[in-house]
């Protein structure tokens, strides 16, 4: 940054702080959203464990609506249908699907750890610096006010 923080006026610093607060909030909520997405993938990956040879032919209840189930048998334990995005679904083997979810989970972890968290830390550090400069300025202002008052009382 080319601008020296101490050169800025109090209102400007205040504005900068608000902006940084907004950015921090945005990044924090992004992390939250990514974590939610990640949990979904973890759950999906875990539920794939049910699709194994031991469970083939077993009976299960299929939810037709959220309140109605019909009996069925587990016929296919080799493949499942995975949503890869923008309306495309791909039939994959269970192993491939697990690999797919692992890829997604790793991708999200990478985004959080490598991109958002460093940015968030940087913003936090910047905010800290701004707040410190603001405190110094406020103190200076108070001191100058006090001394001018003293001058006022002595002269009166």
């Amino acid at each position: 940054m080319a601008v020296n923080l101490t050169d800025l006026s109090l209102p400007q610093l205040e504005g900068l702080k608000t902006q940084l607060d907004q950015e921090i909030e945005f990044l924090t909520s992004s992390i939250g959203q990514l974590k939610v997405a990640q949990t979904k993938y973890v759950e999906a990956k875990d539920s794939l464990n049910v699709l194994n040879k031991n469970n083939k032919g077993k009976e299960l209840l299929v939810p037709l609506t959220s309140s109605m189930y019909v009996p069925g048998t587990l016929n296919d334990v080799e493949t499942c249908l995975v949503d890869v995005g923008t309306g495309y679904y791909v039939e994959k083997s269970v192993e491939d699907s697990k690999a797919f979810f692992k890829r997604k989970i790793d991708f999200l972890t990478k985004q959080i750890v490598e991109k958002i968290q460093p940015a968030l830390q940087e913003k936090h550090a910047m905010k800290q610096a701004v707040v410190e400069v603001m405190n110094v300025k406020i103190q200076q202002l108070q001191q100058s006010q006090q001394s001018s008052q003293m001058v006022g009382t002595t002269s009166a």
Partner: peptide
Amino acid sequence: TDNNIVKEELGLLNSTNTVYKLIGPVL
């Protein structure tokens, strides 16, 4: 970004995989 991710995924597939497109409620 969405489409790039899909492209990447499709690139990993081979002819043994079947692809479905969701059109309205139908695959």
